[in-house]
Design a protein around this nucleic acid. Structure first.
Lengths: 206, 206
DNA sequence: AGCATAATAGTACGAACGTTCGTATTTCGC
DNA sequence: GCGAAATACGAACGTTCGTACTATTATGCT
């Protein structure tokens, strides 16, 4: 890795951290340059313009998410264990201390949902890919016999996503640690509802 | 209503519309003045400074939400009908065409969740109040016998909130109309899970 | 070691930001 | 109808924004 690539990578690390707090749009070249300890012009030379910087920052954040959340989940055995690992890692990711301003993608989602362009496309693509991957994991859980065959993977993924969103909201806006427990309870009930044990069996105690 | 109050009110209507698209932080005095057809100085004189403008805009959006979503829901009979009305109105609100940039509160939530200050406090207070109202509606549904007594109102409100968040996300970022159906399905299952008709559960009403 | 090139800094630009001030205009009670 | 108060305007402030262009420094290959 050349020197330029090194500093570019270091810049992006700082950029993700800053974008976490200020949003992808609020991330300014001047503030980033100050945080990275270099000049505005020297910094932006690595990317050309701000949009390219935003795209690169988003890609870096997405790559981190894949590495911290999805890859470990894929290491878990397919089926329910993988889904559980996914949720656990995802919650860890959202509440991690090294993302001081929350998930960059979730923040950018509300920023760019009505702002057509390359950033929005990259963002939507990432979320679509994520949702598809979840749906696939659900399908595998059905194949493994952990979930009932009539389970709709997309509906399941939708509801799981909602649980995560609500948890992130409560955690970040209200600093409510109960959101973790609530997410786990909601997930357990979501699974139970689609599991073969459903109908005969136990009740979940909160 | 004096003339000043009239223009102030008209400004806030425009401000809500603009903040819907640009966010509460991205809402600039210059752009708002242009949209309202008046000068920057003449506009900001009604509020003092930008933060007061943001607070007033937020309060206006919150009042609109109460009027369009919560008040009609309260008109429905307590219990399940009220909860169903709440969800229906909420989804209408989120997908309404006159909120071109999405819900102001949801947008501001991710903007200000790590920015302490008056705006964040007002925002968090509103969401707390909303969540409490939902929990209360759930409690009433339990009292009416529509939901099982062991239902945790806060857990129920959490999950309902998650359904709404996921629906708003899919609708706004992916323009996915299926999010409405998915929200309804998820809600129906959430209710079913806590209802007396649910499989194994014991009845409370004779 | 020397040199071509990559990498960073420096500077300047026009525009937009929020805010303040002085002044003109309009409204409204008397 | 008059005058005080409310309301709106226009101009300017200092700052920051993203970007462009030039100069300087550092790297790496032969």
């Amino acid at each position: 890795m050349s020197r330029g690539e090194q500093t570019r990578s270091a810049i992006l690390d700082t950029a993700v951290e800053l974008a976490s707090q200020l949003g992808l749009e609020g991330l300014s070249i001047g503030a980033l340059a100050a945080a990275a300890g270099m000049s505005k012009s020297g910094l932006i030379a690595h990317f050309g313009n701000k949009q390219e910087l935003q795209l690169a920052t988003l890609q870096r954040a997405q790559a981190r998410f894949r590495a911290s959340v999805f890859a470990p989940a894929l290491a878990a055995p397919r089926g329910l264990p993988r889904l559980e690992a996914l949720l656990a890692r995802w919650l860890d990711w959202l509440m991690s201390a090294d993302l001081p301003g929350g998930c960059v993608m979730l923040g950018a989602a509300t920023e760019y949902d009505d702002r057509p362009g390359a950033v929005r496309n990259a963002l939507a693509g990432g979320f679509r890919e994520l949702r598809g991957a979840i749906a696939k994991a659900v399908r595998l859980a059905v194949d493994e016999g952990h979930l009932l065959p009539q389970t709709d993977p997309w509906q399941f993924a939708f509801e799981l996503f909602g649980i995560v969103l609500a948890s992130a909201h409560d955690w970040r806006l209200h600093a409510d640690a109960r959101s973790i427990t609530r997410a786990r309870v909601a997930f357990a009930r979501l699974v139970e509802r689609h599991s073969a044990a459903h109908g005969h069996a136990e009740r979940i105690e909160t």
